[in-house]
Design a protein around this nucleic acid. Structure first.
Length: 851
RNA sequence: GCCGGAGUGGCGGAAUUGGUAUACGCGGCGGUCUCAAAAACCGUUCCCGAUUUUCGGGACGAGGGUUCGAGUCCCUCCUCCGGCACCA
């Protein structure tokens, strides 16, 4: 038989799949469905190693489920709107559309080269007008539900480039292109009211039993629910300040108050013109502080006493009111009561401004805190009628008091904020709204969708306006209500909007009358397996859950959670080389592993996620050319558990290649074996062993695929099977062909989700006519999984001292007898008294002696 | 600081969930083939000690506990990685 010629085999089967279209699906009432989805890529040029891993994971599941008789929906598309296309347009003078669709064509070709079993008819890019028409529809739907609204908000603005920047374009407080300090400017923008679903988004996380715990935790933290109280502090001389606190029990220790710079009262309260001026300066300064700097470590606390006081509603003391940079306007009410004894931030501030620090909670009644500030709960002191009460009880009683006096109540706050949707960008889906001078803000009529993105457009940045505003043709329209002249909204949507519903469209991609056909959605959704990187643990997944819930509430969907099972795969890392003067150097250019090839200074080596900027990318093609796609697929699965990150090492690939060659040689030495009618019942010991190996491997591989993507151990089991089979065949060459047939066929079927090209070819060589895509997945028989004779270890005082080969099913009495006759056991027991013998059937025998 | 996750040979990693620690692969070493090398194949490989085909001892980040028995459960500590972070 000829050698394993992966090149011909792979192109042969890719062509057959292309022609016979076995991966295309339709809804079916007779077959159970399974929806396997990998997070679709942003098409930035080419497929990289991370994609290969992501899509191979999904493909193994899809192929496995198909063989299990499921009607598998396995689609793929492109998250095609976004910044890199525009950057390319500016830098290389290519139209974003051309750049994007060229990328898509290239990546699609690469996907086919990997042998991924997608239903490519369903493919779309979010930048297709046929798709974004419905993204716009979704926006209008949300608008009509009262879930989309406009509000003034701050945007990042680079005064040098005269353009609005996305958050990720702001690097260390400066513009990514010219490093000019970024300013914050206020603009009227569209928001989606995700906060209307806060409680549901939080609660229903608990129903997602098949999601990784850490992803759910991250979402919980992001939503950030905290229980506390809102309290009104009357201002001396009129007015009031409302605050939120999670530590109502410490209110007797509130010795001052602090407003966020953005708080409306910050400028209203000061009466002294000097203070007012100083306050203005502080406010401006904090507005100009970029968010990154603001959150980078602790910035020094700055504040100004406003010259006014408030009453502490419990102590009735007059306490001073400050404005300070450490209070956030977006959280709570943007104002706090400061309890320096029990809060580190307030403590620092109090020290700086020499304010009183009063201890009000102690660990035990009659004691004192060892160190202030102390944030732990305990028992109250210095708190009037609440003294000696534990924190929890005091909180309840204090809340009752507040409610009586109408000064506050227990309440709940969240960190989650509404989703800022507007982007002052070109390459995105236009927000379908119209401004009419007479009728106001109006939605585009549904039948006028899509609002098309104009292609002839000047990209030169022009300040605070979106590039779309420069297109006269786009900008001017007629009012859908009065028919007079009107202007279009020129902002585009955040691309997360495009990806927040694409999994729905995949199940029903052909309708041009509605976003999706309900019957098809009802059949295929929710997604059974959703696979992608952890980097989307919060935003994409939270947005998708929100959109699903909104559609559910209006009857478009019959499920509340879009992704039943989520799997987050680990990154692939590779050595990266850092030179202080030449930054990242591609590892290939570093010859002696120590010095920069340009300046010969010493370089720093580290493991980094493969990325263009770090120059440590290895393209999947490098494996494909040398070893083939099947080897590449197995390698990324075998290197480490799928959820863990692993370091790319070229050497390890050859081990996989050798294995596939062994499989090739083994199977091809039995051509046409499938054509023979043979009895697979074993006649002797060796044949029994073959039978056992076969059924054990079927069990192991099936379980490993089913349970948590344990593909590395599944492949190891297949390697073991091949090694063991080879050893037996070499030892005994007159094995019953029937037993062999079962083993060899099982091997080919078991390996097929991992190495589909090789498996198809071998299946054909074995004499089968039909592709194994829909071949039945092998089923193990329990009685062939366990050996008749087993080796039982014997422990004496916790150490293995001997082994016994016995029947698996054996009476305990008989075992005890055998143990006490064992030579080695007797040797170790010499001079000792046996205190007890524990027999664990089929596992171990444990003796312990008197000590 | 808070919340997650992980520490097992030279390396990536296994361990039926409390029952023979190191499966499988890489790398190393030895061999076969070859003029030679590569590839391929075969053997070997946790560490230490000896009386060296055998035997004894030690090892799962460190220490302690529960147990006949702990990589696995409990407590204390150390290290690394990830997320969040002036969230009141």
């Amino acid at each position: 038989m000829k050698n394993y010629d992966f090149q011909n085999i792979e192109s042969k089967w890719q062509k057959i799949w292309e022609e016979q279209k076995p991966f295309e699906v339709e809804i079916s009432s007779s077959k159970p469905k399974c929806y396997v989805l990998e997070m679709f890529p942003y098409p930035s040029g080419y497929l990289h190693m991370g994609h290969l891993k992501n899509y191979t994971l999904g493909d193994v599941v899809a192929r496995y489920k198909r063989m299990q008789g499921f009607n598998v929906l396995h689609p793929m598309g492109f998250d095609a709107f976004g910044l890199p296309a525009e950057n390319a347009a500016i830098k290389q003078n290519i139209h974003p559309k051309k750049w994007t669709y060229d990328s898509i064509a290239h990546i699609k070709k690469q996907m086919k080269g990997v042998g991924l079993s997608y239903d490519f008819r369903r493919q779309f890019a979010t930048s297709d007008p046929e798709y974004y028409q419905w993204t716009q529809w979704l926006f209008l739907f949300l608008y009509k539900q009262g879930l989309a609204y406009q509000k003034e908000a701050l945007v990042n603005f680079c005064p040098h480039c005269q353009t609005v920047l996305a958050n990720e374009q702001v690097i260390a407080g400066g513009c990514w292109r010219c490093e000019t300090k970024v300013l914050k400017n206020s603009l009227k923008q569209w928001f989606l009211k995700i906060t209307a679903y806060t409680e549901e988004l939080l609660l229903e996380l608990d129903t997602l039993s098949e999601w990784p715990e850490h992803v759910k935790t991250m979402q919980k933290n992001w939503i950030g629910k905290s229980y506390g109280a809102q309290v009104t502090f009357p201002i001396v001389g009129g007015g009031e300040i409302e605050i939120f606190t999670t530590r109502l029990d410490t209110i007797y220790g509130a010795t001052f108050m602090v407003l966020a710079p953005e708080h409306p009262l910050s400028l209203e309260l000061p009466q002294d013109p000097g203070i007012k001026e100083a306050t203005k300066i502080l406010i401006n300064k904090s507005l100009l502080t970029p968010e990154i700097e603001r959150s980078a470590e602790e910035i020094p606390k700055e504040g100004i006493f406003l010259g006014r006081h408030a009453f502490n509603p419990f102590t009735c003391e007059k306490i001073p009111i400050f404005v300070a940079n450490y209070v956030l306007s977006e959280y709570g009410t943007g104002a706090i009561m400061a309890v320096p004894a029990h809060d580190t931030r307030d403590y620092d501030f109090a020290l700086k401004f020499n304010l009183p620090i009063r201890e009000v909670v102690v660990p035990q009644p009659g004691t004192h805190c060892e160190n202030l500030p102390d944030q732990t709960y305990g028992y109250l002191i210095n708190s009037g009628p609440y003294n000696n009460l534990p924190s929890e009880e005091a909180t309840i009683k204090m809340a009752e008091f507040l409610q009586e006096k109408l000064l506050g109540k227990l309440t709940v706050r969240y960190k989650l904020r509404d989703w800022l949707l507007s982007r002052q960008r070109y390459w995105g889906a236009p927000i379908p709204m119209i401004y009419c001078d007479f009728c106001g803000v109006l939605p585009v009529n549904e039948e006028d969708l899509p609002v098309r993105l104009p292609e002839e457009i000047d990209f030169t940045p022009r300040g605070m306006v979106s590039p779309l505003a420069t297109s006269e043709e786009f900008l001017h329209t007629t009012c859908p209500q009065c028919g007079g002249s009107a202007r279009r909204e020129t902002d585009t949507m955040d691309t997360f909007m495009c990806s927040s519903w694409y999994y729905l469209r995949f199940a029903s991609p052909f309708s041009d009358r509605e976003p999706f056909i309900k019957k098809e959605i009802d059949y295929f959704l929710p997604v059974d397996y959703y696979i992608g990187g952890v980097e989307h643990a919060i935003l994409h997944l939270l947005y998708s859950r929100f959109i699903t819930k909104a559609l559910y509430d209006s009857g478009y969907l019959n499920f509340k959670e879009p992704f039943s099972r989520l799997f987050t795969q680990g990154m692939i890392t590779h050595t990266a080389c850092w030179c202080p003067s030449h930054y990242w150097i591609p590892p290939k250019e570093v010859k002696d592993e120590k010095y920069c090839p340009k300046c010969y200074t010493e370089i720093t080596l580290s493991l980094e996620a493969m990325s263009k900027s770090k120059g440590n990318i290895v393209l999947p093609e490098t494996i494909f050319h040398k070893y083939g796609a099947d080897t590449g697929r197995l390698y990324v699965l075998f290197a480490a558990p799928a959820e863990r990150e692993f370091e790319w090492k070229e050497e390890s690939v050859s081990g996989i290649f050798r294995f596939l060659n062994r499989v090739w040689k083994l199977v091809t030495s039995y051509p046409s074996l499938s054509l023979k009618e043979l009895d697979s019942h074993p006649q002797n010991k060796d044949e029994e062993t073959v039978k056992l190996i076969t059924h054990k491997t079927i069990k192991k591989v099936s379980k490993d695929i089913e349970n948590n993507f344990r593909f590395n151990t599944a492949i190891a089991a297949l390697m073991e099977m091949v090694n063991d089979l080879k050893a037996i065949i070499e030892k005994e060459n007159s094995l019953n062909q029937g037993v062999l047939k079962e083993a060899i066929e099982s091997l080919v079927l078991l390996i097929s989700p991992f190495a589909p090209h090789l498996a198809e070819e071998l299946w054909e060589i074995l004499g089968n006519q039909k592709s194994l895509t829909f071949q039945k997945w092998p089923v193990y028989q329990e009685n062939w999984v366990k050996e008749e004779m087993i080796e039982l270890p014997i422990q004496i005082d916790g150490r293995v001292r001997s082994k016994l080969i016995v029947l698996r099913v054996i009476e305990e009495e008989k075992l005890r007898e055998l143990v006490l006759q064992d030579e080695k056991v007797l040797k170790f027991l010499a001079g000792k008294k046996v205190k007890g013998i524990i027999v664990v059937p089929e596992k171990i025998i444990s003796l312990h002696t008197e000590r």
